[in-house]
């Protein structure tokens, strides 16, 4: 069975894209796996392969405007191509199964499949050819380069590179912020009643530093890895808070003042660094072994700094 589709993106599609980008209702944004006909394809038409995440499918079909072709949608459990390839759901086995299930050989006479390049970490092209007879061709990384790619089925080096520029990072911010919105509010309220306004103020500042300022400034923070970038950024937030706490704490006994203010210098940088360390998952260039080394090197520091800060903070809450 072939499902007809078009390359036009409707208002409803756009609404869904916005929700998906904001990290809301993403799990429902799936399309049915199978073979789709875009326009009026015949047995010579190209076959494009994609994931059953709505945003992946819509990006592909809208990039293929005025092209009659087939789109083969794999069951990636509603996950985009790259992440699914990493998990293996956009993978060799699923592609082979899907080719058989839609009886692709009955619909086309050629033997070319065009896959997105980022699907390559899940698919072994030579295995597909050996087991199905179809030759895998890896198209460009970005769907908007497809028309240019189709002119002679070749990609320029730039079309083969992933980018992580300012816009790419900007577009990721809403997802991250929606994830932490509720916990932030709850924690703020809790800290306000437990320890007062400055501790409560710390929560949104940490979130803003880690999830909004950090992603935008990644290339310009002058240290080589995510944790140290986070420590640096966190310190810039912590110092004003430290001074604020020093000034606003009334008794003039210096060590009590210090005891109340010091936790900011310990807790804020370690929390921001923890957030930025976790940001590695959102970037397209950190490696497994690199992240592993970073966790080993810096997580213990974050952990003990945080613990020391909480300990000193609690202690001075009672002796002041």
């Amino acid at each position: 069975m072939i499902t007809p589709t078009t390359s036009s993106i409707t208002l409803i599609d756009r609404m869904q894209h916005i929700l998906a980008r904001a990290g809301l209702r993403r799990s429902r944004f799936r399309i049915r796996p199978g073979l789709y006909a875009l326009g009026d394809p015949n047995s010579n038409s190209q076959v494009f392969v994609t994931a059953n995440y709505g945003l992946s499918f819509d990006t592909l079909r809208s990039a293929l405007s005025n092209i009659d072709c087939y789109i083969l949608v794999l069951d990636t459990k509603g996950i985009n191509v790259w992440c699914a390839a990493g998990k293996g759901t956009f993978g060799t086995e699923e592609l082979i199964r899907r080719i058989g299930e839609v009886k692709l050989k009955d619909h086309v006479t050629h033997d070319i499949l065009i896959l997105p390049q980022l699907g390559a970490s899940g698919v072994a092209a030579h295995e597909i050819e050996r087991r199905t007879g179809f030759k895998v061709e890896y198209g460009p990384v970005r769907a908007n380069d497809i028309l240019q790619y189709l002119q002679n089925h070749a990609a320029t080096p730039n079309m083969r590179r992933v980018t992580f520029n300012f816009m790419d990072r900007l577009i990721l911010i809403p997802v991250e912020l929606t994830h932490v919105f509720l916990p932030t509010i709850i924690l703020m309220a809790l800290l306000y009643f437990l320890s007062g306004p400055i501790p409560a103020l710390t929560v949104p500042l940490v979130v803003i530093a880690g999830l909004l300022v950090f992603p935008l400034l990644i290339p310009w923070i002058p240290t080589p890895n995510f944790s140290t970038k986070g420590f640096l950024l966190g310190s810039m937030v912590a110092v004003p808070l430290f001074l604020l706490a020093l000034i606003s704490f009334p008794p003039a006994i210096w060590w009590k003042k210090l005891g109340v203010a010091l936790p900011y210098l310990l807790i804020v940088p370690s929390l921001v660094a923890f957030i930025t360390l976790n940001y590695t998952g959102a970037t397209p260039f950190t490696s497994k072994s690199g992240v592993k080394r970073e966790i080993f090197a810096f997580f213990p520091i974050m952990f003990w700094m945080f613990l020391a800060g909480v300990f000193i903070g609690t202690l001075f809450r009672f002796i002041r």
Partner: peptide, 17 residues
């Protein structure tokens, strides 16, 4: 994964902390 003669090896995985 795509080198048919296995000239390349890498400990592949997610770079997500």
């Amino acid at each position: 994964l795509n080198c048919a003669v296995r000239a390349i090896s890498v400990d592949a995985g997610t770079g997500c902390a």
